[in-house]
Structures are given as C-alpha cells and as structure tokens.
Amino acid sequence: MRIWQTVEITTFGRRSGRPRRIETWRYRADGRYWLSGSPGRRDWYANLVAHPDFVLHVDGKDFPVRARPVTDPDERAHILGTIVPALDWAGSLESWLDGSPLVEIGHRVEGT
C-alpha cells in the first residue's frame, strides 16, 4: 500500500485572504494524515501557518479541515523518518528535516 496520494487543497492567502487551490501530496504515517513536500519554501505552507483552516479535496469530495504545522524537531524526525524512506525519489532524510514543511491534517469542528 502506498503511503502517499495526490490531492488538491484550497488554502487562503496569508495576505490577501483569497482562496488558492493547488495539487499536492498527502501522506499517511502513524495512523494520521500529513502534508509535506520536498525541501524548499512553499506558499501553501505559509498560507496554512497564517490561516490553518483549509479545504482538502479528495476523491471528488471536499472536507473542511485544520492544519497543525509540525515544528517540534522530535516529532518532525519521527514522522518524516516514516515518510521519506518509503519514497524512492525523496533524497536524504536530513534534507527533508532541514527544509521541508510538515503539517498534520486535523478535523475541523464547525463553528470553531
């Protein structure tokens, strides 16, 4: 079973507040879902830090969810240590730890 899936997300611009829909990869690790990407700066990550509520589009359905940016070094090492070795194209774990965004996809309770 693959640990990743191509999905689309709609974030809201950190300055403009306008919706931005992009394609990205969702990963499954530790029984939870995550967004990440190869090392580098990502606008979607900056948008989620500023506005954590976003929409996950998967299998023709839209799910309102909340992002939890993962900045704790131990948690990042654990989760990326699960994801990266399973990707034959990913490169080194160290480069992902140093420069990749990592966000847990959480459930959003309406009205909060």
Rank of each mutant, 00 (worst) to 15 (best):
F54G: 03
G40T: 03
T82G: 10
W89M: 00
D53G: 07
A46P: 03
E94N: 09
G81S: 10
V84T: 05
R2M: 14
W34H: 04
L48V: 05
R42Q: 14
P39T: 08
G13W: 06
T112P: 06
I79V: 15
P52W: 01
W96Q: 07
D59H: 04
T71S: 13
L97K: 00
S95P: 00
K61T: 12
F54T: 01
F63Y: 15
R108W: 02
Y45C: 01
R66P: 04
T6A: 12
L97F: 12
V109Q: 15
V84H: 06
E94R: 12
G60V: 03
R14K: 13
H78E: 14
R41G: 11
R14S: 12
L35S: 08
F12A: 08
T71I: 11
R18K: 15
R68N: 05
L35E: 05
Y33Q: 09
L48W: 04
I22H: 07
G111Q: 10
L35M: 11
P64W: 08
I79C: 06
F54I: 02
S16Y: 04
T24C: 13
H57F: 06
R28T: 09
W4T: 07
R76H: 10
L48M: 12
Q5G: 02
K61Q: 15
V84P: 00
Y33T: 12
V58R: 15
E8K: 10
S92I: 07
M1P: 14
P19D: 03
T71H: 13
F63D: 03
I3Y: 10
L35G: 00
S95N: 09
R76E: 08
G13K: 06
I79W: 05
V103A: 01
F63R: 13
P73R: 07
G40N: 12
T11A: 12
R14T: 00
V55R: 03
D62T: 07
E110A: 15
V7Q: 06
S92R: 10
V58P: 03
D72W: 11
L56S: 09
S92W: 11
E104A: 05
S95V: 08
H78I: 07
V70A: 06
M1Q: 06
P85Q: 04
W96V: 09
R108E: 01
P69N: 08
R14E: 12
V7I: 15
W44Q: 05
I83W: 04
